[in-house]
Nucleic acid binder design. Structure first.
Lengths: 334, 334
DNA sequence: ATGAAAGCGCTAACAC
DNA sequence: GTGTTAGCGCTTTCAT
């Protein structure tokens, strides 16, 4: 790769000034049809691409968007990132990815680094904090805890209707006759978990079913094996239940394995629901009924709102809650 | 966020020149202990972070590394990206992610965009082509087709020993008594698939087992459902087999589902192996025996080699093949 | 409709 | 050990 051509070179070859080339590239008007054609031809012939560092330095905007995500290995987040990246690419923007591993100090470091790089905007997935230092940078929060309007600052937020998801899943179990439902969730600063749990409580409340202390598992982290062990312990302890409502597919998968290892059949003996409707749900046991989030729409909306803000417009609303659906598979149909 | 401070500001506040501040920041020597302390204090007090666009413009290096990947939704790739990003972050570099969706034109566009952005280096995962235009930019190819030394240009390549993986998986099946093994693979420009298949052929050849035309499924794309349908068709057609060697976990999962739907038990009636050892393998059916790639080591090595090249050093070798292991689960143990 | 020129924030060559 | 300064490639104001 010989040294990249500069705008100066293009200007020289096209017999115009660098200003004109810049105007043509950015379609800022004030050039004639012929000049445009000539410049574009030279650009094409020389395979010229503007230097983004220079552009970024000059304009403080880089056509790069930062995406901060807890863990890209989580299929749901991977899916969101994939869709975001496609939306960005369609619009000529790049995607800088930052895994936080749920560490808020790492998250802070990433945010710092992103602003230092003059990113055009940030999508912050499932963050704990508000960043007032980001108040002049376009930010869309996805999956983040609801806060009061005051506290939220300028950012816009998008989430799935997690409470409704928990509600739908639980209703599915109740409708199939379950009366002793194990709730399998994860602690930590993830407010989604809580919302899903609230949906569960609402559903059983409406059905006149009592919540049972013994039928609540709180894991420290989301993992197949952690869930498997926890459910196995419960079964070993002789605790009885006829349904499991898990707040993630991963933990549901662990539960299904534990059940199988204890000679219990899904869905004959125990019914199970998951959340996220990822590949795991399709492959797990007899097929896992799972709450489906509309990731494509979520990403599309996030991108649209972000670009609105980047253009200096203010989105109509500052909080969007997307509907979810239940993908019914065999784990809840005897 | 008020306008970010510049190096000039810091220099003024510290009572030194910008050059000195720059030297301190980059630890380029030629400053006194006291000056250093003073400058660092001012930097800390003012929460100063250097503008990366300016740095990038000046040095043509941005502390950003591009990662080109077919599809981040594939658990194996997501895992690689996660590890790469962690390695980069540890070294103070950021990670620009580009999904190609297996489209070579999109890949080309991304490469162009990455060079325009002055990335410091590129990790190219599972690409089809060689890019001679990248010859002066540090590039590490991961999972890419082997080429002759001539054709490969300057890039360094890393891959898992896919042939050995296919061999190990097949040996596992043979060792358990399988004699009619269905090979489930995917067409397309992915040379790994071919390598894994070659491992299969070697194993059955050594065991004196004939390869059967009827026991070969070539899917157009990797998906649970595609595999499920293909295997179901075979079973409906009355084709008999006692083992399945799949070149990915995803397809293996589909196969397991098809078997279950036809009343066949894994591992009693049919044994199954997958490849990649991802979550799916843990959760699928009775647990899927799967070939495990050392993703952490692969990412570590890729990063190390890339940084060597970025420092202008030439790695010892231009081709690394990493050993794989077999994670044995119940799908191959009756 | 076009050009000249300033300057974004930083680094590095050179001078002292 | 420290300062001065040119210039990376681009956009944009101002002049024409």
């Amino acid at each position: 790769m010989e040294k990249a051509k500069s705008i100066k070179e293009i200007a020289r070859l096209a017999g115009v000034s660098t200003a004109t080339v810049s105007r043509v590239i950015n379609q800022n008007g004030r050039f004639s049809k012929e000049t445009e054609e000539r410049v574009l031809r030279v650009i094409r012939q020389n395979d010229y691409t503007p230097n983004m560092s220079a552009k970024g330095l000059r304009t403080s905007r880089t056509r790069v968007i930062g995406v901060v995500v807890p863990d890209i290995t989580n299929p749901h987040f991977a899916n969101v990132v994939l869709h975001l990246e496609m939306e960005f690419t369609r619009r000529g923007y790049s995607c800088l990815i930052c895994n936080t591993n749920e560490s808020s100090s790492l998250e802070k470091k990433h945010i710092r680094s992103l602003t230092a790089q003059n990113v055009s905007g940030i999508v912050l997935i499932s963050s704990t904090r508000n960043y007032t230092e980001l108040d002049s940078l376009p930010v869309v929060y996805v999956d983040r805890p609801s806060r009061s309007e005051k506290e939220r600052g300028e950012g816009v937020m998008i989430e799935s209707d997690n409470t409704q998801g928990g509600y739908l899943a639980t209703r599915e179990l109740l409708g199939a006759g379950c009366r002793h439902i194990l709730i399998l969730k994860c602690l930590g600063n993830d407010s989604n978990q809580l919302a899903r749990y609230r949906g569960f409580q609402r559903a059983i409340g409406e059905a006149g079913v009592e919540e049972e202390e013994a039928l609540r598992i709180n894991l420290d982290a989301v993992s197949i094996d952690g869930a498997r062990k926890a459910v196995a312990d419960l079964l070993d302890g002789g605790v009885a239940f006829d349904g499991i409502m898990s707040t993630t597919d991963t933990m549901a998968a662990g539960a299904v394995i534990a059940l199988r290892e204890h000679g219990l059949s899904v869905p004959r003996d125990v019914l199970v629901t998951g959340f996220d409707d990822c590949q795991l749900a399709e492959a797990c046991g007899p097929g896992l009924t799972s709450v489906h989030q509309d990731v494509a729409e979520m990403s599309r909306l996030a991108t649209e709102l972000l670009f609105q803000m980047m253009r200096g417009e203010r989105p109509e609303r500052s909080h969007y809650r997307l509907p979810v659906t239940l993908t019914v598979r065999k784990s809840t149909r005897r």
